[in-house]
């Protein structure tokens, strides 16, 4: 088996005068979960579409499963599975009929189809619901059925384009367990998401911003590389006022709203905590809790994107 399932080199896509993907290069190791992150319009979906053969690249090359995406798109299509954020199932067909159809489209034999259909029904937790129409299923079930349809033909690589949108947290968690199982079984999983907590499940993360790769690596190495200062979490009934008070202080390296709390990057945790409390007291803002937190990928994301924006190197806005 090759070391890399996907090799992308200088891949570029222009739509008229707009560059959606700008000279992107990266490799995806066989069997890993590869998380592709970025805001809407950062170029994630365009990249996936090029890798799946849905869109021709303007320049640059890529191989998927060893096949050139521009010269051998038919071979690529046989090697991959694809699931879009719309869970593109036939709503007026039953669970079994959807699986039968996609199995047939990928040329599965009758015996192979029967076996894989059973596997997919069990994987999606849809035993006993084989005859239900897809439109009658809850979001999480439809999502797992769509995954079943996408990997029915045992592709070596599966592309999941924002597969967890609009699904409840329990189902999301369960879905990531399935992704883990696929990866453990040797399937390369290429997944995009904008839930940063989900990115923690990935072996490798690539962060896209305005058509380019902004950062990449394992979640651990990304945090180590980009978050050198301790981060304090400040809980306050008036987080906005607290933000205004703290962000002008010279000792506060980075300040951002995090949910209903405030994250402040400082040089030293103990000294920082003292400074935060003093500043809030001076402004008459009550502080419920101040404490050090483990940095998350969201901290990394903010650090990287804000760094890019401040540097002014990236001024493009995605469409």
């Amino acid at each position: 088996m090759e070391e890399y399932s996907i090799q992308v080199s200088n891949l570029t896509k222009r739509f008229g005068g707009f560059t959606a993907v700008d000279g992107v290069s990266f490799n995806v190791r066989a069997g890993e979960i590869f998380g592709f992150l970025g805001a809407n319009g950062a170029g994630k979906t365009t990249t996936i579409k090029m890798l799946c053969g849905l869109l021709a690249s303007t320049s640059g090359t890529a191989t998927v499963g060893g096949f050139d995406i521009n010269r051998q798109p038919d071979r690529v299509k046989r090697a991959i599975g694809y699931m879009s954020q719309r869970f593109s199932l036939y709503e007026d067909l039953s669970v079994a009929e959807n699986l039968t159809f996609f199995g047939g489209v990928y040329g599965l034999s009758d015996a192979g189809l029967r076996e894989r259909r059973e596997w997919a029904v069990a994987m999606a937790g849809l035993q006993g619901r084989e005859r239900s129409l897809a439109r009658e299923l809850a979001g999480g079930m439809r999502q797992r059925l769509a995954l079943g349809c996408a990997v029915l033909h045992r592709p070596g690589i599966v592309f999941l384009d924002e597969p967890t949108g609009g699904v409840d947290p329990v189902s999301r968690r369960r879905f990531w367990d399935l992704i883990g199982d696929l990866s453990a079984g040797g399937t390369t999983v290429f997944v995009t998401t904008h839930y940063l907590d989900e990115a923690e499940y990935c072996h490798t993360i690539m962060l896209m911003h305005a058509g380019r790769i902004a950062a990449g690596g394992s979640p651990g190495s990304l945090k180590a590389e980009h978050i050198r200062n301790p981060i304090l979490e400040v809980e306050s009934p008036d987080a906005i006022a607290a933000l205004d008070a703290i962000q002008d202080q010279s000792w506060a390296k980075e300040t951002s709203i995090f949910g209903t709390n405030l994250h402040v990057s400082v040089d030293d945790a103990a000294e920082g905590e003292r400074l935060v409390r003093r500043t809030l007291a001076e402004h008459g803002i009550p502080a419920a809790r101040v404490g050090r937190v483990t940095p998350t990928l969201e901290d990394v994301f903010i650090q990287v994107i804000e760094g890019k924006s401040e540097a002014g190197s990236q001024t493009k806005v995605g469409a």
Binding site: C52, K77, I80, Y82, S84, S88, Y90, E91, V105, G107
Partner: peptide, 13 residues
């Protein structure tokens, strides 16, 4: 309209 066309476009059909 339902997005299944895209699903078929990535298939060998």
């Amino acid at each position: 309209e339902r997005g299944t066309m895209e699903q078929l476009a990535v298939s060998p059909v």
